[in-house]
Design a binder for these strands. Structure first.
Lengths: 88, 88, 88, 88
DNA sequence: ACACAAAGTTCGCGTC
DNA sequence: GACGCGAACTTTGTGT
């Protein structure tokens, strides 16, 4: 019925279903943690902390410190060039 | 030194660190599952299946069937209007 | 002051500023059209048309017809495999 | 043929086509400028400038200076809290 | 609070 | 093999 675009065999349907279900299960697990992360930020916010800054910290901590220093050094040059020294 | 933008108290630093670490831990867990999902698709692909179609199936299954039918009905009208009947 | 990360020369600052301003001007123009597009959709919506379907049509029209037919054929096989025949 | 989901009238097809074509034309214009922006960055890069920093400058300049100062002040507090003082 | 829309990030692909 | 390009997904912000 459907040759040529599928690794034929009578069980192609079953295999397709199996792949999809595996993805769905994993996606559900993943969502769990995504929701947990949101909760943490919500808790932080309701405690008076700045969520934007927290997110930024997380992002920065995920990067290599040396690379970070380099990038900051370069950016500072450019910021100075355009007169935005107040961000240095 | 830093009052006013933080829920003061000498332990603000510790609380900030705690929030960030909780997020980082959850993010790591989340990444685990994201990676697993990729592996499933990679396995499917190397088995000869079409990853794009699989992804689309997953996306469609996540939606409500009735809503899906509705949307398809409307889209078909529009596709017909612009002469793309071969997609019906 | 800034050696090594910049194509030196006393006018590096000016060149940086010039690049940035060129980008900003082009960005402003680009935004004009982005806004116009939004207006078109808003007008369509307020005329009773389905914006989602319109967006989908635009996306589909931007693709090659042959490729589109192929993709649809494959997707149909997969949808059939998972019993979502009502989307065929 | 298609009543109920459309602002009926025999010219619904024409109106749909018109909306889509307007969007397509505007999209083409928009793409022109997007391409121009890329060219500017490419030129800057081939002149030895740091594209990442230039993009960052553009982004920062688009924001309100006061808000920027505020955000930086807050972020600095948080960075200090987590011991990333080298980014101050 | 929910959905829609916008932005940023990531991934896969084609090119050189 | 790397680089840039374009598409897709995720996440964030907003408006209802």
């Amino acid at each position: 019925m459907t040759e040529d675009t599928l690794p034929v065999g009578g069980n192609a349907k079953e295999r397709i279903k199996a792949f999809i279900e595996r993805v769905e299960n994993l996606t559900a697990e993943k969502k769990t943690f995504a929701d947990d992360i949101k909760e943490v930020y919500a808790e932080a916010k309701s405690s008076g902390f700045d969520v934007r800054a927290l997110r930024e910290c997380v992002k920065l901590r995920a990067k290599d410190a040396e690379k970070l220093k380099n990038e900051k050094a370069i950016l500072d040059i450019y910021l100075n060039a355009i007169g935005m020294d107040f961000l240095l």
